[in-house]
Simulated scan of single mutants.
Amino acid sequence: MSQSPLVVVRRVLINPARDVYFACLYPPKGIIYFVVHPFLYPLVRARLMPAFLLSAFVLLNLFLWTYLPQVAFLALFHRAGSAWANGTFLVLGEGAAITAILFECFLVDESQVDVFDAVLVHKGYEDLVRQYRPVSEDSLNKPVRRLGKPTKSSVYGPFSFRQIIEFVVLLPLNFVPYVGVPLFLFLTGYRAGPLQHWRYFKLRGFDKKQRNAFVKRRRCQYTWYGAVYLLLQLVPALSMFFLMTAAVSSALWAADLETQRRRQGPSEGPRYTDDPEDSTV
């Protein structure tokens, strides 16, 4: 039975555009949620000062020693001063990559797990979190205090050499005038987006095929989300703060996905083993 043109337009254009729009809103929603929920502050307070100092040190040295040479090189291919803008994004991208790698030494992943789990508990999904750590029945609305020590290996996002390599390989896209920076953000966001939900996939008990099929159905949403996430990582000196709020935003998205799933009933399970992508995440 044929569908009306309006139904087709809504299914093919309007609904996907709406979903992408809402996915792009999660990073700023994560920032706002963090600011207005002080129970999260203790989880990141100890990380912010070393993160700020580390980020400032890396960016200061990059701008001092590499900015002008890179702008001079870009000027060979650019016109109308766009070399300065692209050079800025290039150095900020390099700084974000270096800082993210170095910050692994400060065990930021552990803090991201705690932030993610605390938000899920606050949203009422402690049943998911209990699979990996005890959650007390404290009547006070303090999710962080309710979290026990993890009983299983808990990783917010796996350290992906492939993602780092792709990031470095794609950095030269910033040489392309005007369109280079957006291309860089979207191509790196293609992989960065799904990795932000690695913890959620583990809590759901997804195997590789289920995980890849889940991401495949939401590929555009994850790519746009990843692009906005990476754009925030380019903000000087605040990249590590936004790295922590990213855990909030991904938990908010996961909570909304859980709400939708439980309203509709168990519709995502074994059938996701059908059409896998071998290397989505």
Rank of each mutant, 00 (worst) to 15 (best):
M1P: 13
S2Q: 08
S2D: 13
I14K: 08
D19I: 03
F22E: 11
F22H: 13
A23T: 04
V35F: 03
V35M: 02
V36Q: 02
P38G: 00
L43K: 00
R47W: 02
V71D: 02
A72H: 07
A72Y: 07
L74R: 00
F77M: 14
F77Q: 09
A83W: 01
W84M: 14
G87D: 11
V91S: 08
G93T: 04
G93L: 03
G95A: 10
A97H: 01
A100L: 14
I101S: 05
F103T: 07
F103I: 10
E104V: 15
C105N: 08
C105E: 09
V113K: 00
V115G: 05
K123T: 08
E126N: 09
D127L: 05
L128E: 03
R130E: 11
Y132T: 15
V135R: 14
S136A: 14
S136E: 14
E137H: 07
N141A: 15
K142Q: 13
V144L: 05
V144R: 06
G148D: 05
P150C: 06
P150G: 04
Q163G: 15
I165L: 10
I165Y: 02
F167S: 08
N174C: 04
N174F: 03
Y178F: 12
V179F: 11
G180H: 05
V181Q: 12
V181K: 09
L183C: 08
L185T: 01
F186H: 02
T188C: 12
R191L: 12
G193R: 00
G193Y: 00
W198C: 04
F201S: 01
F201P: 02
L203D: 08
D207R: 01
Q210S: 06
V215W: 09
Y222V: 00
Y222D: 01
G226I: 09
P236R: 02
A237T: 13
L238W: 04
F242L: 09
F242K: 13
L243A: 08
A247N: 04
A247K: 05
S250L: 00
W253P: 00
A254K: 11
A254W: 03
E258H: 05
R261L: 15
R261G: 15
R263Y: 11
R263P: 09
S267W: 02
S267G: 15
T273N: 15
D274N: 12
E277Q: 13
D278T: 14
V281Y: 15
